[in-house]
Amino acid sequence: MEVEEIKLTAKDLLAPPPVMPWREFADWIRMGNSHDIVWGWIRNGYIPSHKVGKHVMVNVALFTRDLLEKEWMA
């Protein structure tokens, strides 16, 4: 999937889901063909995630909260 193909609405940006599959997350942050980079971030613990059955879900709510907290500390 090309980055230009991804169509985000205002709703997508203002109210992201609390969790999403890691590949969807990679597309959502517009990593294009660099899904392996996102997988590395997850594997190294940079992005909060949880395994549900055989699926790895990114905790978008926790990730957003952590980023906002870091913003205030800077």
Rank of each mutant, 00 (worst) to 15 (best):
W41E: 02
W28Y: 10
I37S: 12
F25R: 03
S49M: 08
H50T: 05
K54G: 08
V38L: 04
A26L: 02
H55C: 09
F25S: 01
V38E: 00
D36V: 12
S34D: 05
N33W: 14
W28L: 01
V38N: 00
H55V: 12
I29L: 14
N33G: 15
K51N: 14
F25Y: 07
V56A: 05
R30P: 08
A26T: 02
R30D: 14
D27H: 14
E24A: 03
K51T: 13
H50R: 05
S34W: 03
V38I: 08
K51F: 06
G45S: 13
A26D: 01
I42C: 09
D36K: 10
I37K: 10
M31K: 07
R30W: 07
I42P: 04
D36L: 11
M31T: 06
W39T: 07
G53R: 04
W41I: 02
V52F: 10
I47H: 00
N33M: 15
I37L: 13
G45H: 05
K51S: 11
H50E: 06
W28Q: 02
N33K: 15
D27M: 09
V56R: 03
Y46K: 15
S49G: 08
V56P: 00
I42T: 14
D36I: 07
G40N: 04
K51G: 07
N33E: 13
H50G: 05
W28I: 00
K54Y: 04
S49L: 09
M31N: 06
W28P: 04
I37F: 14
N44S: 15
Y46D: 12
W28F: 07
R30E: 12
H50L: 06
I29T: 14
K54P: 00
P48S: 07
P48W: 05
H35M: 12
M31A: 11
R30A: 09
G45D: 08
N33D: 15
D36P: 03
I29S: 12
R43M: 02
I47M: 03
P48T: 09
W39E: 13
P48V: 05
G53E: 02
G45Q: 07
G40R: 10
S49F: 03
G32Y: 14
G40F: 00
